[in-house]
Amino acid sequence: MGSADMRSFLAFLGRSLAAVLLSFAVSALIMLVSGYNPALAFASMIRGSFGSANSFANTLSKSVPLIFAGLACAYANKGGIFNIGCEGQLYMGAFVSTVTALSLRGMPRLFVIIASILTGMAAGAAVGSFNGFLKAKMKLNEVVVAIMLNYICRFFTSFFVSGILKDPDSETPQTLPVGEHYMFSKLIPKTQLTTALFLALIAALAMFFFFRETRAGYNVRAVGENGAAAEASGINVARTMILTMAVSGGLAGLTGVTEVFGKSERFIDGFSPGYGFTGIAIAFLAGNHPLGILLSALLFGIIQAGSMKMSYEAGVSTSMISVIQGLVILFVATPELVSIRIGRRRTA
């Protein structure tokens, strides 16, 4: 990284940090006004997420899907496409990988896991590239299409797990378990922290490398920056867009895969608490920087993991975390709120 590069990255980090701190301050104010003790609330949030090895493992495991979702959104953003379809893509990823594992039952463990990961990613990629295709070739707005595809994917999977793929012994719509044997290995016993964490770290590093060092990464960035110039340089813009959405969809698919094979052991209808949408916020907070995403996903993981403890120790509702997350985004999105004040003071 060049020095100017480094400087702008640090400046960015500073801005993000300022936004985070500001959002904590405002949430504290809200808690105060509503009659809670913010100091106690934040302390219990920290205890809840860092208090013990297990709670920290829990925090990390909550960050894993957020990393994948954040990377998925960031990848598309770099290519100039807003992928709001991660949610649908991750449902398809989770669903197809579960079906793969269920139908390969009895086969060797590694083979099944790898096959499930690949088919899950492929499913997400298929949905993503379809979206990309409609944008690149048919000039349809990717956001509108993605929102519709989200519904289609969500209800497509719902249809199957409520019907022919439903676990007959269960009340709720969900598939049979893929079997303990086929799950990712746990890093700490009795927690949900699995080797999926490594997969997430590898994905982030790979993406960092990809955009920095490879021609393909350069081409994606170039298309994202200026399609007309990219085209004149010889890049096939439509194909690049479609591939961008394929990769983004594949990463979103991984979000679903790792939830099944790391946590739930099966496909559960409606399992995602909106990872795909949180991913947008995470990518945004990280300025689409793959390594920044690790940090911002961790932050969101901490907030989410600590929310339970915050709720029963300080009595603050867990919905407070949505407020905090929302505020973070608000402050990142409107740097003017923070910096203009500072700028004014400096020149005055």
Binding site: G2, A4, D5, E213, T214, R215, A216, Y218, N219, R221, A222, E225, N226, A229, A230, A232, S233, G234, I235
Partner: peptide
């Protein structure tokens, strides 16, 4: 011809990214 927010180095590569002089085996 230009990627406005990209560095001069990245702009130099524009249009040359398919040449072996600047990219080998897909690596810049």
């Amino acid at each position: 011809a230009l990627l406005s927010s990209f560095s001069l180095e990245d702009n130099y590569l524009l249009g040359k990214q398919f040449s072996d002089n600047y990219v080998r085996h897909g690596i810049v």
